[in-house]
Design a protein around this nucleic acid. Structure first.
Lengths: 217, 217, 217, 217
DNA sequence: AATGAATGAGGCTTCATTCAT
DNA sequence: GATGAATGAAGCCTCATTCAT
């Protein structure tokens, strides 16, 4: 029926995929504040100009620190972008998964997914744009790829489980997941590019549309 | 009923939106060959490392021409990426629109759209990846943005028209279009990242799913 | 009698140890000229301030080329200092060995050695200072170490051979060689530091002193 | 007979040339300990990588003190290297000169010189390497140059005196001194580079060789 | 027309030094 | 007194662009 490989145990169970480690690299509050300022500045600039298009001193200036200071917190530019990616991807993941109604009906979960993703995209538009509207294949390290893998696996398990319970039509869970997530990203991209507005209505409509596509007949 | 602004004339008509100008900047055939070699090399490299991550001499080397030669065909690096973007976007547009069954039923047109897009994505994976998997906001000029606008407008008009004919459920055409296109991109991205294969079956399934989402009840 | 390890074949034979390759890295004359200008500028500066104390742009300026030009001829600063070291060490070696009276009496050879070394030190004082008055342990690569090894081996073989012929007193050839070469360097260093002058007389005196030290009784 | 300029008074007299000031810059014992730790760390690093190749924070780390602490003991990096040079040069000088048999026969004094130098080189190999195997022309200040001058003058006076007593062959004392010292350094350098071992035998042999070179006929 | 050597501005990073704690 | 986080000048190197050939 489905040739998607998943170990039996996980068929009806899917859970928190990524470590939610609240990293505290520096002991001092001031240090952590500076680290955050650097990450925020980098996020903003990377979204606008991309990783390679952004100069480290520019990040420093926007963060309000000296250029050399960045290297007290990050080994180099690549480490900076990787830590930023991981933190934001984990934040997105946490935003979606914390208190997620894992036991509810599939439709309910689908709605929750769209709701939580939309919340995040609206509250952290740049983080979402950085994560999903840019290609990172160039500089992501293994750790970051692992973090990225986490939410993909979670989504896939959700569809597997929902299919097994007969609430979602059969079909490759990876394909379904990619399309649903793609549709969501497409919506956010349109909003990001000013072609539509992410109102509650729009989101509800989008979610309903998507559900129609995948709901069991 | 729909507040999406479209001039009345175009409601039931949508046609070739973009200039299909087969530009021939250089008179010699050899010149055109070189120009194409440069564009192909640039495409490959931009996909892998991004625009800012790619050095002009690297493009020259991959194209098998001298570094200075690039500047006989393109004013500078930014002009190069813009021409590349336009040519590829226009190629994609042309691939979808040439001989498009404009008069057929919406479902038929939807199928044609998926089919043609998939064809293009499979025949020119790097072109598609360059166009849709990268953020270009940094360097696109007005001309390029206009070209990009073209296919968006075409898609939107299709949905407007199909809605007017009652074949597609109401709802913001821009939202619908963004989600359908997003779903398609999501599918291709998954394939690009090796998470699924773009088989005929997968594409047919995906199209059917999408149609379920938007088909009039 | 002597525990210094040397294969039997080489006992009475010692010959040209290093490749005398007249390297021509760039085809154009202009290129080679620039390369030489860079090496000369580097030599002068390294002698004065040492390798780490010399900035690459300073070398470029003194050589009369752009900073980036240096990297067309040398992979990086370390490659530059290594090529400089090898070229000069080989030049010194060649100066001593070309036409060296290998078959003559030991005293004659000793005289030739002092004569040729002195010639080189007087004609190329900076090259000699760079080679022998600085510590290179920090940045020399294997190739350079191999080149350095060449002349040491040659010297040692000379003493081995002369001892075997009974013209030089027994004793560790490595120790004798190190002391004779050290005495020569000591003399040149004194001259370099302005404490004496390298006149023909001084050199002849020095050679005679040294020979007294090692001549067979 | 000899045109080497030395004031008449000093002809038969040579004595302790340098201030042996045991400087105590800081009152506390702990302070002095820290100062020593810094100097030792610097010595080790300067020998390995040279002055310019060594970063002050690296010295601090190796010394087990904060980076800022170094600046409580030394005005700046250059002051540090100069104080290090002077202390070690004075230590070497003191090691050779304290209790030196000034009145003994020249041969005896020559033996004492080699013996004491060797002792120092074996007990403080890094100090000797720092002092004699590196070029300091870059950063030595006048004080340091004066200290360096001290032992040179002592050595020269010894040879002047020995020549006057007919125990050493005539010839420029500066040349003789430079060669003898050079031969010694050559021997130590060979040992430092692993080409021979500084055994008692080797040292005795070396001293005998040297004496042969300079002894009056 | 084509080349690729040359350039120097600008990018990433280090490090001598300072200063708030 | 001691620390080490912070700084920004300066170092090494890259690369978009030019121009002599």
């Amino acid at each position: 029926m489905r040739n998607f490989p998943l170990d039996p145990v996980s068929r009806n169970e899917y859970s928190f995929p990524v470590a939610m480690t609240p990293i505290t690299r520096t002991t001092t509050r001031g240090g952590e504040l500076k680290r955050q300022a650097i990450l925020e500045a980098a996020l903003e600039l990377f979204v606008e100009r991309g990783y390679h298009g952004t100069a480290v001193p520019t990040v420093a200036e926007k963060a309000g620190v000296g250029a050399g200071t960045i290297y007290r917190y990050f080994a180099n530019k690549e480490a900076l972008v990787n830590e930023l990616f991981r933190e934001q991807k984990q934040a997105l993941t946490a935003h979606v998964l914390e208190g997620f109604p894992t036991g509810a009906a599939a439709r309910e979960q689908h709605r929750a997914f769209w709701q939580r993703m939309s919340d995040f995209a609206r509250q952290h538009p740049r983080a979402f744009a950085f994560l999903e509207l840019h290609s990172h294949r160039d500089y992501l390290d293994d750790d970051s790829r692992a973090v990225e893998q986490g939410i993909i696996e979670f989504g896939t398990r959700f569809f597997v489980s929902a299919q097994d319970r007969g609430e979602v039509n059969p079909g490759s869970p990876m394909l379904i997941m990619s399309m649903v997530f793609g549709a969501f990203v497409g919506m956010v991209r349109a909003s990001w590019e000013g072609r539509l507005e992410l109102t509650d209505d729009a989101i509800a409509t989008a979610e309903a549309l998507c559900w129609k596509a995948i709901a069991a007949d």
